[in-house]
Amino acid sequence: MKPLLLAACLALPLAAQPFQFDLRHLESKATETLDLSLTHSTLRLAARFMDDKDPEDAEVKKLIEGIEGIYIKSFDFKDGELSKADLDRVREQLRAPEWLRTVGFKNREERDTAEVYVREVNKKVAGVAMICAGPKALTVVNIAGPVDLDSLADLSGHFGVPKLDGKRK
């Protein structure tokens, strides 16, 4: 009984942790890496320094409200270093039914792919992930937590964010 209780206690904090990509297999291949990890406490602190009178600040503040974290990783590669298998290893981490692909684009000639995934827990948005890959670069964006897609769409015009369609494939 005691080991079970201990296991349950250890599992609780793990379950509470937001989803994060495991991209270690790409780090050794990349020529350049950008890693931006913004935890809940960083977002909360940043929100306090946003000026409500500034439209951009106000919109970003609204967007990050309640979000658990923003994790961005961007890699630059030498041509041909980023393989299909590498990308598949990233995609595999976004499993259905939790993750739903809302947008997917692929251009074979330009070796360009772009995908948007939405994570749903109890029929509520619990995260958004983006995988954008070209022949020499890969950017993975993971917004963990209850993302307000309307707020994300509202950024349009300020940061050039387009409006998202919620159609599922």
Partner: peptide, 25 residues
């Protein structure tokens, strides 16, 4: 706080650029 704000703005900008790219495609 200022550093955190700059990082958040940068993250939103990167997200915006990627979303734009997807939208264009």
């Amino acid at each position: 706080g200022r550093v955190a704000k700059e990082q958040v703005m940068m993250a939103v900008r990167i997200t915006a650029v990627q979303l734009n790219r997807i939208q264009t495609r």
